[in-house]
């Protein structure tokens, strides 16, 4: 496995990095970064909210345990099946599209936004939010009730408690989870491959085109170069993640 990567580095020295600065590659990189960043932020905020709602339930309640279990399942749920599910919902003849059309006469399908970058944002959030719940719920559980009692004893209002105690404690964990979601969205491929059949708005689809193209020969090396670009981005994110994790660990003892 590691050997396979060194192979491709050998090919890179022949000079395919030029292709990375081409117009199409830059657009794809920008698309990928926007997609990953926006789904990471939306997923993290909504996921944190959902995690808080779940954690605020009593620990033994069935509702809490089952929502956590369902989150675990949905976070793994991606790829082809997920793309199908959304096409069935808000695709051209999707259930929700039809219902909205019948009830209020609104056309939520529009001109096919589901199959472009905005559609990918909605679809990616489907697995980003549950992932955030799994990653972030332990952080909420780590907030000890004693800290809140201590703050209230010292005369803090609810707002003061969140502003000066809870948020600073949760922030490193939140940022770490954000980076994890970013890497997750950046690496996702299957869902996008099924949804988007024309154009290459994001890097993974561009790699697909480069290594499966039958029209342009000799593109495989460009695919390697793009893959290297992905590794660089993911490595940066992971290094940042580890640094944050070390900071978080101080409070999780």
């Amino acid at each position: 496995m590691v050997g396979a990567f060194q192979d491709e580095n050998g090919a890179l020295t022949l000079g395919n990095l030029d292709a990375l600065t081409s117009e199409a590659a830059l657009t794809a990189l920008k698309g990928s970064l926007i997609l990953s960043a926006s789904t990471a932020i939306i997923g993290a905020l909504l996921g944190a909210l959902l995690a808080y709602l779940i954690v605020s339930m009593p620990p033994q309640s069935l509702m809490r345990r089952s929502t956590l279990a369902v989150s675990g399942v949905l976070a793994q749920f991606g790829g082809v099946v997920l793309a199908f599910a959304w096409i069935a919902t808000i695709g051209p003849v999707g259930v929700l599209t039809k219902a909205m059309d019948d009830l209020v006469g609104a056309n939520i399908y529009g001109s096919g936004w589901l199959f472009g970058l905005p559609g990918l944002v909605v679809v990616y959030c489907y697995f980003q939010i549950p992932l955030m719940v799994i990653v972030f719920a332990p952080a909420f559980e780590g907030l000890r009730p004693q800290w809140r009692e201590a703050a209230v004893n010292l005369g803090a209002s609810t707002w003061d408690y969140w502003r000066h105690v809870a948020l600073p404690l949760l922030l490193p964990a939140f940022l770490g989870a954000l980076l994890l979601l970013f890497a997750n969205a950046f690496a996702a491929y299957a869902t996008a491959a099924v949804l988007v059949s024309q154009g290459q708005p994001i890097v993974p689809l561009m790699i697909r085109q480069a290594i499966t193209s039958e029209v342009l020969l000799g593109q495989a090396n460009v695919g390697f170069a793009l893959a290297l670009e992905m590794i660089v981005v993911v490595t940066l994110v992971m290094v940042a993640y580890n640094v944050l994790l070390r900071r978080t660990a101080r409070w999780m003892r």
């Binding site: 909504l46 959902l50 709602l53 929502t67 069935a88 919902t89 259930v95």
Partner: peptide
């Protein structure tokens, strides 16, 4: 108030997560 907010919040999330699955079954 918080309980009501929690119930509504959970319902919204449930709708987001289960409507696609039901739509798939319908389809």
């Amino acid at each position: 108030g918080f309980r009501a907010f929690r119930a509504i919040g959970l319902l919204v999330f449930a709708a987001y997560f289960f409507i696609p699955l039901l739509a798939m079954f319908d389809f």
